[in-house]
């Protein structure tokens, strides 16, 4: 369907993307605004970025968020990948319906309910709220996203590869480790990145499950945003947007280079 790249189609794409990107672009521009008044342009300045690095609270929150993100994404990736294997490879076990339900439910569960229920659990078992409770909470909902990402790759996976490995003498665990995992690795990485960004991004669940001393960056931003737009927050947001963009572009380039390398090797091999 590449016919009909008409004026109308180009216009809808351009307008759509303008809508998606303009607010972020404006935010980035105004983070370099010298004026204290956020909506009045007062010339170019990086003073807000300078101020950020002396804002102890913000830096602490960023550090907490990073630690929670790295840890929860890693645990969620392990658990989510195992769950995906269980869902696709073991069609029969006791409680499979409940298991499937529990993997999918958090995907559609409103965050307020997930947060509320986890908080009530931590209170009920008298678990001190802080870094660990936020991490546990993040693992729980992001592992389900990882499971879905890895599952879709496992479904399109040629099952005879696993059978071949076992036929050649590899136990199920070795088959998983040396054949299945390497083949679905890109999906596992994508799952990890998704889990990591979900954790970095989360405000609601963290607000419920966090405790004193474990304020995450979104919580910090939120409490300041409620008081109004400040150039400093613009600067924080710009840094975050920049990091994400950098990450996505790097990932894309690495992928592309690998593909190019592969096809070149292929051409050489065929020659």
């Amino acid at each position: 369907m590449n016919k009909g790249w008409t004026g109308f189609n180009i216009a809808s794409v351009v307008i759509g993307f303008a809508f998606l990107y303009l607010p972020i672009v404006i935010l980035v521009i105004y983070s370099f605004n010298a004026s204290q008044l956020v909506t009045v342009w007062g010339g170019f300045s990086t003073r807000w970025y300078g101020q950020l690095f002396s804002n102890r609270g913000l830096l602490d929150a960023a550090w907490v968020t990073l630690r929670v993100g790295l840890l929860s994404a890693t645990v969620a990736t392990i658990l989510g990948t195992l769950a995906a294997v269980a869902l696709t490879r073991y069609t029969r076990f006791r409680g499979r319906v409940l298991f499937t339900g529990m993997v999918y439910a958090p995907l559609v569960m409103p965050e307020v309910i997930t947060g509320l229920s986890l908080l009530l659990l931590f209170v009920a078992i008298d678990f001190d709220r802080g870094f660990w409770t936020v991490t546990l909470a993040h693992v729980t909902f992001s592992m389900c996203f990882v499971a879905v990402v890895v599952q879709s790759r496992l479904l399109s996976f040629d099952r005879s590869l696993e059978e071949a490995a076992m036929d050649l003498g590899a136990t199920p665990a070795r088959t998983f480790l040396f054949v299945t995992l390497p083949v679905v690795w890109p999906a596992v990485i994508a799952g990890w990145m998704l889990a990591f960004t979900l954790s970095l991004d989360d405000l609601v669940i963290a607000s419920f499950t966090s405790g004193p001393g474990a304020t995450t960056l979104p919580m910090k931003i939120y409490s300041q945003v409620r008081l109004g737009v400040t150039p400093e927050i613009n600067a924080v947001c710009t840094i975050l947007v920049g990091l994400v963009t950098l990450g996505v572009i790097t990932a894309t380039l690495v992928n592309k280079r690998r593909e190019v390398k592969k096809s070149r090797e292929g051409e050489l091999a065929m020659a």
Binding site: I24, L27, M193, T197, D201, L203, V225, C237, V248
Partner: peptide, 9 residues
């Protein structure tokens, strides 16, 4: 991939 909070903000 960009923070939801930032996009709303």
């Amino acid at each position: 991939w960009t923070s939801f909070l930032i996009r709303v903000y």
